[in-house]
Amino acid sequence: MKRFLTLFILLLSVIVTHAQDKQAILKVMDKQREAWNNGDIEAYMQTYWKSDSLMFVGKSGPTYGWQNTMDNYKRGYPDKAAMGFLTFKILKVNLIDKTNAFVLGGWNLKREKDAPGGYFTLWFRKIKGEWLIVCDHSS
């Protein structure tokens, strides 16, 4: 019985941690959306791993590095009108292990003259206790 109780407590702990990690990742996504909708690319970029190893894959192919990714965002979205209003539809959050997660979702921008949208896959890694995007493939 003691062994069963120990296993039950361990399983419960894993389930709780799993749920907390999913919530933390969704909070990062909310923070990202909020920063974007405030026209603040610098705050938006704080959800990404600040490393030369960050990878962003878009229609032009891969970009490596946090600064290069930031520069591309600033060129592509020079002002709040270009940024529009961002919404996400999260389709899946899959925790791979204690420090890696995969997120699949859709994105939409509402702007004065158009409403582009697409899908993304994100690889999150827990670095120093914080969930950060280490690879973003957006189309």
Rank of each mutant, 00 (worst) to 15 (best):
L86C: 03
S60R: 09
G106W: 06
K92E: 14
G61P: 09
K74W: 07
N72I: 09
L109K: 04
K98T: 11
P78H: 04
K89L: 14
K89W: 12
P78V: 08
A81M: 08
T63W: 09
D79S: 05
F102P: 04
N68V: 08
K89N: 15
W107R: 04
A81N: 10
N100C: 05
N72R: 13
N108P: 04
G117P: 02
M83I: 00
I90W: 02
N94L: 12
F120Y: 15
K113H: 10
W107L: 00
P116K: 02
N108I: 09
A101S: 00
R111T: 05
D114C: 03
N72E: 11
M83N: 01
N108K: 15
T87D: 12
N100D: 12
E112C: 07
E112S: 12
N108H: 13
A101M: 03
K89P: 03
G117N: 09
D79V: 04
G65N: 01
D71T: 11
A101F: 00
F88Y: 15
K98I: 07
A81R: 05
A82Y: 06
N68S: 13
I96E: 11
Y77R: 04
Y119T: 13
K92A: 07
V93Q: 02
F88W: 14
W107E: 03
A101K: 00
Y77K: 07
N108G: 13
I90M: 05
I96K: 11
T63Y: 10
G118V: 08
A82E: 10
N100T: 15
